[in-house]
Design a binder for these strands. Structure first.
Lengths: 206, 206
DNA sequence: TCATGGTTTAACCAAATGGTTAACAAAGGT
DNA sequence: ACCTTTGTTAACCATTTGGTTAAACCATGA
């Protein structure tokens, strides 16, 4: 009975992640979280003062992990195009590992932008390691062709993230056209994204 | 006082759209909707039996409009690539007109997939006018290069829809890199999407 | 052993919320 | 004028839900 002890808090957080990701802030019930964690509801309030704080923890954690994943961490001596390819790989694999993450963030961000801005300001974002900075640098020094870095970033992120966000919609589209749908074949997706990166960032394509 | 009469129902629906799109099914309060419509809460139940039915109306309507927009309606004598370009134009302009639409659908679909499948089955989807069918046809008869139509469709939809879905995230990314962010410049986006379509669907690119 | 302090629970509470009721108002047909 | 139907409201109700409380539990050190 007392085996849990210190990990009770972790158990609760795990359960809260699960429920909040599925139901969202408003849809989630404290009782559901308690059930999921296998504990009494009052214990939630013992570890986390109230629903808002518990949610903050989950939301903030997810945001942080999400934005961490957007740093360019690859070897600085590599050509920019290689680093962007690596970036897209990391992004897709990250999303494949946490398929609900994007949906959760988008849901909650859209329904509480104030909290989002508050939380995101608390996360240190290093300009030095951002994709936009890298692109701008490459364009300035001629390593990349001249293109709009914001549009490119949007295209890239879109192609990486939206398949996870809109998976149920894509399933239905495929079904209704009688096309087979392989849920987990992210390699094909990545190949196409790599093609796109080469297309946009290779100078030979001009 | 009695001026409204027949349009009360429409007023309620309009208010419900507004509130549900902003807050989602769980976050929306019947009282909020009544306030937004400027009427008594009981009147909601007079026109729509309960919250679920009112939501169904909004959700179903949104779904229908969304999927209607996915029909290929352009002139059949045009080259396929032209028709796909037109398709992307329509899609982006549609989303630009209803920027919350995608987020709303994704939110609610992800938190109630059963309802989604139920509703979507009630919408007649004509294989004949689907993008996938068109692509398959073009590939079969050699008008298009050989490519995976599902991946292409995912890429295309992603680039069109995700900028609206993740607008707040993109804003933050741009801000934190000190890049100016023009919210409404969809023409740049469309240009890039058109480039992509040409890149993928032109045989000359092989 | 037993006192102590952190941990856990059952029972409870107040507020919020979806939904109902009964009465009233307006309009239209007779 | 009067009855019926439709539209509208204030007040009310039952349930759900986030949150609290007081008591119990249990490991541990004096």
């Amino acid at each position: 009975m007392k085996l849990k002890d210190q990990n009770t808090e972790a158990t609760i957080l795990e359960a809260a992640k699960h429920i909040f990701m599925e139901k969202g802030l408003y849809g989630a019930r404290m009782q559901d979280i308690a059930n999921q964690a296998g504990i009494n509801k009052a214990l939630l309030h013992y570890y986390f003062r109230n629903k808002e704080r518990l949610f903050d923890e989950v939301f903030g954690g997810a945001l942080e992990r999400y934005f961490q994943n957007m740093d360019i961490i690859s070897d600085e001596t590599l050509p920019i195009i290689e680093r962007v390819l690596t970036y897209s790989n990391r992004f897709v694999h990250f999303l494949a590992e946490y398929p609900q993450m994007s949906i959760f963030l988008i849901k909650e961000i859209s329904s509480n932008q104030a909290l989002f801005h508050l939380k995101v300001n608390g996360i240190k974002k290093d300009k030095k390691y951002s994709l936009l900075t890298l692109l701008n640098e490459g364009i300035r020094n001629g390593e990349l062709p001249s293109l709009d870095p914001v549009v490119f970033l949007m295209n890239l992120h879109s192609m990486c993230a939206y398949p996870f966000v809109a998976a149920p919609i894509f399933q239905v589209i495929c079904q209704s056209s009688g096309v087979q749908w392989a849920d987990s074949n992210h390699e094909k997706l990545l190949n196409s994204i790599h093609d796109f990166i080469h297309f946009k960032l290779s100078k030979s394509n001009l």
